[in-house]
Amino acid sequence: MHQKACTILRLFRDNGGFVSGEYVSKELGVSRTAIWKHISSLRELGHVIEAVPSRGYRLVSSPEWFDSVELKAQLNTLRVGKRLDCLKQTTSTNSDAFRIAEDGAPEGAVVVADAQFGGKGRRGRVWSSPAGVNLYCSVVLRPSIMPNEAPQLTFLSAVAVTRAIELTTGLKPEIKWPNDVLIGGKKVAGLLNEMSAETDCINFIILGIGVNLNMSPDQFPEDLRYPATSLLLESGSKVSRTRFAATMMNELDKLYADFLEHGFGPVREEWQLRCNAKGKAVSVSDGGIEQTSGLFMGIDADGALLLRSGGGRIERIVSGDVRVI
C-alpha cells in the first residue's frame, strides 16, 4: 500500500493540476476504489487532495512535517531509509534511533522528526530544534569494522551533508575539522554520532544529523557558542525539507556503500578537498588556550588532523578547536 501511495504522489507532482481517476487507476493497475483508499490514507497523513467529479484529483498541499510516503518517493538507496520512522516531535532522534537499534532495527533505519525537545549536542548541550523548518534525523548503521575505526564515519556524514547542500542550493559549504559544516564561516549543520560496541565488534552506530534549512534569524537561540546560519539565510530562498532530506540520504547511502567496499580512502580524500583548512596554516586551541599551529596536511586513518610545524615535524591532533590563520 505504501508504494502505491508514493506512486500516486509522484503522478500528482509530474502532471500538476488535475489527474483523472481513470489515469491513476491505469498507471497503478488497480481499481478506482483502491485508489480512493490510497487517497484517504494520504489525506490522513496531512496531504490536502481535492476531488472534483469528472476532473479527478488535485494535490493542493503537502504537510509541513515530514511523512514517510513523501520522503520515500524521492529515495534511491540500497540501505539508508529502508526503514523510515517520521515523527512529528520527539525528545531526540538519536535516542530514538539508539532504542530501535537495540531492538534490532536493520542497517539503514532512519528516524526523522519535525521537532526535537532535547536535540543532543556535545557534552550534554542542546541542539536547537524548532518545528517545521529544519532537518533532524538519525541513521542506524551496522558496519563490520573494528570499534577503533568507527570515528571514520564522522567524516562520511559531514561529506554527505556538504554534498546535499551543494546539490540543493548551489552554495559551497566547507568542513571544519572534524565535522562542523560551515557556510561563510558560520555553522549550518551539527553532527553527533553514538556507538554501541563490544571490545572487538560494533553493535551499531548512530549518525545524528541536524541541518539548519529554513530557520529565520529570530529562531536562533541567543546564547549560541558560535556564529550560526541556515540555508535560507545564505541562499535567500526556501529549501524543500523533503528534497533536502532525500538528497542527503541518497548521498549518504552512496558514500557508505563506497566506504564498505573501498574503506576510508575515498571519503578521506573528498573530506580533505572540502575542508576549510586545505592548503592553509591553522592553530589548534583547547579550552581557549593555543596548543600548537602548523600547515594543514590532511587527516590520517584515525581521522586525526596532521599539521606540519615550522621545523618540518608532523604533528597529530586528536582533539581541540581548529582555526584557520
Binding site: T154, M195, G303
Partner: peptide, 9 residues
C-alpha cells in the same frame, strides 16, 4: 569515550 564527535558509552 569521545573520539571525533563519536560518543561511545
Amino acid at each position: 569515550v569521545e573520539a571525533m564527535k563519536l560518543m561511545n558509552e
